[in-house]
């Protein structure tokens, strides 16, 4: 009886203690999301001076909106390519940084420089390097005047390159943390058993690194899917919307056009995509945790 009371009191106390945090979260995260969903059910354009409930009409329009489909395609392509390349580059980098060799501290520090530069500054820097007339890239590659940011098809890849340059160090760092959590005994045992480096990598490093890999994938996918600042600085979504991502489309609709209803619809859909991605990863992560 008293034990039950004590545990009830404890639960009450716990609820009481987390209540402020929950309230703050509800106020700063839940409320804006619900407000956006509510707005997305309205026709609300500031200059028109009207705001009326239209149900799911905005969502119906979204399905017919070719610009939305292009933006969704651009975003998905950007995310897929950028994250894949980042992982492929970060893996050897992390393995290298994990080895003991002279100058390792220096390497670890210098690898972080791109990550430390604010995205807008880095994007501006790259925009000048991409400049077809006096940019560094075309100077290094004389005779070929490549218009990096002005050619449809090429511009999105130029943006991917900036993202890869900027966030590969972050992925490498996450993987490095994962590598350092692998017990050395396993490697010693493998060596005793006569396993080659390739086999060690596939049978020991990669499986034990998978939780860290998944975390890195989760972070990067969600980040890349919401990409805004780098592309906005590089191209503003041009040429001809070939680099327009969902976030840029939503921003232009919301803040430039003042179309709050449809802009909120775009934001809500972006949010739902991100939630779905996150849920997928979390399931994978849970499974990999169980097998361990």
């Amino acid at each position: 009886m008293t034990g039950q009371d004590a545990s009830r009191a404890e639960r009450l106390q716990a609820a009481f203690l987390v209540a402020p945090a929950v309230l703050v979260l509800a106020a700063v995260a839940l409320f804006p999301i619900l407000a956006a969903v509510w707005l997305s059910l309205h026709r609300s354009i500031l200059v028109f001076g009207e705001e009326r409930f239209i149900g799911v009409e905005n969502y119906a329009f979204l399905l017919r909106d070719t610009r939305f489909l292009t933006a969704l395609g651009n975003t998905a392509y950007f995310t897929l390519v950028a994250v894949t390349v980042e992982l492929l580059l970060a893996m050897p980098l992390a393995l290298l940084m994990n080895r003991a060799f002279p100058g390792r501290g220096l390497l670890r520090a210098s690898v972080l420089i791109p990550w430390a530069i604010p995205t807008v500054v880095a994007a501006k820097l790259w925009a000048w390097m991409y400049n077809p007339d006096f940019g560094l890239l075309n100077q290094l590659w004389p005779g070929r005047d490549v218009n990096w940011l002005g050619t449809p098809g090429l511009a999105l890849h130029a943006a991917i390159l900036v993202d890869v340059w900027k966030t590969t160090p972050f992925v490498a760092l996450l993987l490095l943390a994962g590598l350092q959590g692998i017990p050395q005994d396993l490697y010693k045992a493998a060596r005793v058993d006569g396993a080659g480096p390739w086999r060690v990598f596939w049978r020991i490093t990669l499986p034990l690194l998978s939780p860290a890999l998944l975390i890195a994938l989760l972070f990067r996918t969600l980040d890349a899917f919401r990409v805004f600042d780098a592309i906005y600085v590089l191209t503003e979504g041009g040429p001809a919307n070939t680099t327009e991502t969902l976030s840029i489309y939503a921003y232009k609709t919301l803040m430039r056009s003042g179309n709050f209803g449809y802009g909120s619809t775009l934001s809500v859909v972006t949010f739902l995509c991100v939630v779905l991605l996150a849920l997928g990863y979390l399931r994978l992560l849970g499974r990999s945790g169980v097998t361990r």
Partner: peptide, 8 residues
């Protein structure tokens, strides 16, 4: 006009 115009 040079191609760079489309990003200028």
């Amino acid at each position: 006009s040079p191609p760079s115009v489309t990003s200028a």
